[in-house]
Each structure stands twice: as C-alpha cells, then as structure tokens.
Nucleic acid binder design. Structure first.
Length: 577
RNA sequence: CGGGACGUGGCUCAGUCUGGUAGAGCACAGCGUUCGGGACGCUGGGGUCGGAGGUUCGAAUCCUCUCGUCCCGACCA
C-alpha cells in the first residue's frame, strides 16, 4: 500500500476527548474516528489490525472444531421474552419497533438466537457435539461508554456457543476452548493470564476470563507467585483462617468513642490495630437489608455477597437508609443486638475479644465474641483478597495486578436450553436439554488492550502478528530517481513474497515519515535515503527494541524477509503443543 | 440516574469575568528556500463562536431553554 493513496490521517496533537493511551494513539495514528458516543469508524489501518486478530481467532476456533456462521443483529422480542431476558436485561438492550410495531432489539449477545436455531435443527445426540461461532458487531447501550475501543457501545466480538450431550462432553469442550483461547492470545503476541471468574449475569456454573496484563486495566487480578492459581478480584479467595485461639472470653465492655466513626479513627483512639475491630456494613440485597461483618482491615466483596444471598443486585445502603433501618448513625453499628439479618466473613468467626459498634451514637463495645454475643445466619468468604493473604491452593504469597478482559469462557449448563426447551434425544430415546457453553472474545477491545500493553512515547508498538503492516519502506527522497527506484524495488520485492508492506512515498520531510512510522507501530522499518548513494546501504530498524542495522541494497529484500519470517515464527505454535 | 466541566475554522486552544462586530499555533492551497527525527519565509482560502429564544443601540461575551461532548460517583461506617 502506498501512503500517498492511503486514508491515514495521523495527528500531531492528542484530541482532548481521549483519556487513555490506547484511545489517544488509535486516534493519533489514524486507526479510528468517532462517529458518536461509543461508536467508531475503523479506518483502513484499524480495519487491517482488526482483520489480523479475527483471522487468528478463526484459525484457532476452526482448529478446535468450531464452525463459523453469522447470526442476525436485529432480533425479535419474543425470543427474549421466552428466555426471560427481555425484562431482566435492562436499558443496555437497545429496543425498538419496526414498521409493523413488532418489538425488536439489537443483539448484545446471541444465546437466544443460537439456541432457537439449534432446537429447531438438531434433535439427536448423534449430531453432538456442536460448536458454533460468529464474528460480528454487537450493540450494548452502555451507561457510560469510554476509553475508545475499550468500552464502546458498538464493538466487534467473536461469540461462540457449544452444545453437548453430557456433562463430561461439555467439560471437554470447555477445556478445548480454554486451550484455543490460550493459543489465540499467544499468537497475537500478548502477555495475558487466564483467571477464574464470577459468572455474572450470563449465568452458568464456572468460567474463566482472559486478561491482557496492563497497568491501565480496569480489572484487578490475584495471581499466586508460585503455583498456577489466578483469579479475578470478584472471585479470588485465600487460605482459610486457622481456628480461633483458645483463651479467656472477656466480659463485654462499653466504651465512649466520641465522633470516632471510621475504623482507623476508632482503632487509633482505643490504641488497637484495625484488625482487632469488626466493621458492620449494611447492604440492600434486592432491596432487603442485610448486615455484613468483616474485619476492620478488610473490605466486603459485593459479588461474593450477592452470590451467597442468591440476590440479583446488592448495593451498599446510604447513611440515611441505615439510620432509618436501625436508628443508629453509621460508624457505630455493631452485631450485638442488631435487628437485621447478619452474615459474617469467615475471618470474623475466628476473632476473640474484638471491638465493634455499640449500636449507639458515640459508643463502641470491647471484648465482642462471635457465638457468645451474636450469631450470624451464614459464615462465608465475603471479602476482597489483599496482598497480605496467602494462596488458597499452595499457601504462597499472592500478587495483585491489573488487567484488561479480552476473553471470557463460560460453562452455561442447561440455563438457556431449559428456558427455550432446546432438547435432543439421547441413545436411550430420552429427551434431554443440551449442555451449553459460551465463549466470547472482544476483538475490537483486543486492539485497545494490545496498545495499552505495547506502546512508548512515540506511539504504538504492535506485536508482529497483529500489526496492520509488517514493514514500512521509507522513501526519503521521492524526487531522487535512484533512491525512489530502490525503495520501489524493495517494496515490490517484499510484496511478491507475500508480506504486507506500506511504502511511504509522500513528498514529506524525513522527520514526518519517521514520526508517522513510529506512531502507527509497524514492526520493521526500512529507510532508503542518502546512505544508498553514499554506501549502497539501506537501514532496517525494529520498532520494538530500536535495533538498527545497515544492509546492502542488493540483499535487503532477502534479509528482511528472513527477519520477518523469524519474527512470525516466534508467535507460531506447533501442533503438538 | 446524580454531580462537575466544556462546546470558538479540520486539530489544540486564547478571547467570555469587565458587551463594541473574531484571533494564535498546527493542518490545508500557491510560490520560494529547505530535506535522515514532525523546517522556514511570503501569500491565500476557511468560522451563522453547538442550536433556539431573550436583554441591549450593539452579544462569542449577560439571561433562559435546548442539544452535544468529556470527566467523576454509585457512598468501606
């Protein structure tokens, strides 16, 4: 491709609307333009990278035995009524009526459509397993779209759905997809981790998220420093506490703590550490209040609470709501004598003689003991893991790091097949619901994640497999016949070997060409300029490490071809791996 | 939904408080000089100051409404 004919509008300055680096660079490097909130145009380079990732995804999905199809974006409401999600999904689902007043929606995901298809077309265990996927534009009317391609309303997603006859077969399919996902992100050249995750609103029995590691990620991951344990913060757990220490249970004692509401203030006032204190947090679980007890130095993990209670939504009560419910201002709440359902983190259960609110303004209680002074309805792991915790599997130290979710695989079970009555006949002629799984990859988000992970002050540093071009040839003097013909011949030579090459043939100053080449992140740069006339050499520079070498013009195409092939080989995966 | 900020040429922004009829840099077009890390000079084109209404002799500037964009928050007691 010739730069002079390419729609590649690079920007010197950073548009004010872009906050995060991937968004800034995608705009500056001429990959995307915004049409409206959360909706972006893919310019030629953006599309090139999108297609690269799609191709890796396709190859690995096909290799794992999945089949590609394409489902409609517009879906009828009746299917969503049938699954129950027409009412559950909320305003993220963009609804509208067509000219015949038929309620419809834009597909944010396709469980309903695919399940409907399979229930109509597949009736026997002999047709199973079946694994179907598509790569398609999804629409979710997000409350607050932001960060460019990271959280758009319209985005490109690979979504796959599997149908198996038995739990064991479904587990094998899940494992296959897990392997395929590892191969996909390795082949894209990204540093990532697969972590255990909460199943969230999609439901199902277990799931893993694939997280691209980047400090700017929105999610926190908990990773064991020695074994393979890794989990999303919502799901992460830690080594269970050892049993409560034996010893005297001292009598309750009420102490005045004027104006001390926060854990840190109370602890300091009483001369104790925050871990000798119990916090009482009031949550509303589907509008029903519940008090949650955690140690003073811990924080409630709302998703764990939600799962324990089987609630659809939990939220922290406001100060006013707490007062209305208990007659106690926040800061002085405690479990002793509290007239609310109680649940307790397992760490609280092993505490002895601790401090808690007295349910009276300006007073706390000393020597509170679970079991003696109060009973919790349920005891469970309800808190966020911290770096002070130990790995639940091997007991080693844990590390917290940030990541961007680019893939998510779920074992769904029979949630949708049951709701939509999608069944098959097994070998005994018995009717059974399909055991389903679903598997997503945010293809457009992966571009943003790749940039968050791989950039410097000059621009993007694309991993070779997903770069829009593998090499860029800079013709520094388009008006010089010798230089121009040399640049053209290197460009043509590489193209003939099947490489994707950009030729910068613009009548621009050299500085602009260097800057643009760095900005768009092309891995190999070939500069044809005065060194050619002086020494017969061209310069090759690698974007990632800045490594530079001069090559004789006559050997340039071959040497470069070797370098690109060697570079690509580093990301390929042998079939027996 | 709640809170904050901002809408001035393609981009980044000044001018708004204190009303007097629109500016800079970049980008774009032409000419000349330049040419290995975003050059320089001269000339030129381009803006109903987001929109509507109002106040005023006069509004980018003041008032009201409206649309759009960006950021923050979903309360750790």
């Amino acid at each position: 491709m010739r730069f002079s004919h390419l729609l590649l509008p690079t920007l010197k300055e950073t548009p004010t609307e872009a906050e995060v680096v991937s968004h800034q660079l995608l705009l500056r490097a001429g990959f995307i333009r915004k049409l409206t909130t959360g909706i972006y145009i893919y310019l030629p380079l953006g599309l090139a990278t999108l297609r690269k990732i799609e191709q890796v995804v396709r190859e690995e999905m096909n290799r794992a035995g999945a089949q590609e199809l394409l489902l409609p974006m517009v879906q009828p409401a009746d299917l969503w009524e049938e699954s129950g999600r027409w009412h559950k999904y909320g305003p993220e689902l963009l609804r509208f009526t067509d000219r015949h007043d038929r309620p419809s929606c834009l597909g944010p995901t396709h469980e309903e459509v695919i399940t409907d298809l399979v229930r109509r077309e597949v009736h026997s265990y002999r047709s199973l397993p079946l694994n179907l996927y598509q790569i398609q534009t999804k629409f979710r009317d997000e409350i607050r779209p932001r960060f460019g391609l990271m959280r758009g309303r319209e985005f490109v997603m690979k979504d796959g759905y599997s149908f198996d006859a038995t739990e064991e077969a479904a587990d094998r399919t899940y494992q296959k997809m897990n392997d395929a996902y590892h191969r996909i992100f390795r082949r894209c050249g990204l540093r990532f981790r697969a972590v255990e995750a909460d199943t969230g609103s999609i439901g199902g029995s277990f799931s893993h998220e694939f997280m691209v590691l980047a400090d700017t990620g929105e999610d926190t991951l908990v990773i064991c420093t020695s074994c393979r344990y890794a989990a999303n913060m919502e799901k992460a757990t830690s080594q269970a506490p050892s049993a409560a220490p034996a010893g005297e249970l001292r009598p309750l004692e009420k102490v005045e703590t004027p104006g001390k509401r926060k854990v840190a203030a109370v602890a300091e006032f009483l001369g104790i550490s925050p871990r000798e204190l119990v916090k009482t947090m009031v949550y509303l679980a589907d509008s029903k209040p519940v008090a949650v007890l955690v140690r003073g130095d811990h924080e409630v993990q709302p998703v764990k609470l939600k799962n324990l209670l089987g609630a659809v939504e939990v939220e922290l009560a406001t100060d006013q709501q707490v007062f209305d419910l208990t007659g106690v201002p926040t800061g002085y709440l405690g479990p002793v004598g509290l007239k609310l359902p109680l649940v307790m983190d397992r760490e609280v259960a092993v505490l002895r003689n601790v401090v808690a609110g007295a349910n009276e303004k300006n007073y706390h209680l000393r020597n509170v003991n679970p079991g003696r002074d109060f009973e919790a309805g349920q005891v469970a792991d309800l808190r966020m893991v911290t770096v002070a915790d130990r790995c639940p599997v091997c007991g080693s130290e844990l590390e917290l790091t940030r990541g961007i979710e680019v893939g998510h695989i779920f074992k769904l079970g029979i949630k949708y097949s049951q709701a939509l009555k999608a069944t098959f006949l097994d070998a005994e002629g018995k009717e059974r619901p399909f055991i389903m799984g679903c598997y997503g990859i945010g293809v457009s988000r992966t571009i943003a994640a790749a940039i968050e992970q791989n950039h410097d002050k000059d621009g993007i540093i694309f991993p070779l497999p997903i770069a829009p071009f593998q090499a860029v040839v800079l013709n520094l003097s388009p008006n010089d016949g010798q230089i121009t013909s040399a640049a053209e011949s290197i460009y043509e030579g590489l193209r003939q070997q099947g490489f994707e090459v950009l030729l910068d043939d613009r009548d621009e100053r050299p500085g602009s060409k260097f800057k643009d080449a760095d900005l768009i992140g092309v891995p190999f740069r070939v500069t044809v300029g005065r060194k050619l006339a002086e020494q017969g050499m061209v310069e090759v520079r690698q974007r990632a490490d800045g490594h530079t070498a001069d090559l004789p013009f006559a050997e340039a195409v071959e040497r470069l071809a070797e370098m690109i092939r060697a570079g690509l080989a580093r990301y390929s995966i042998k079939n027996d791996e």
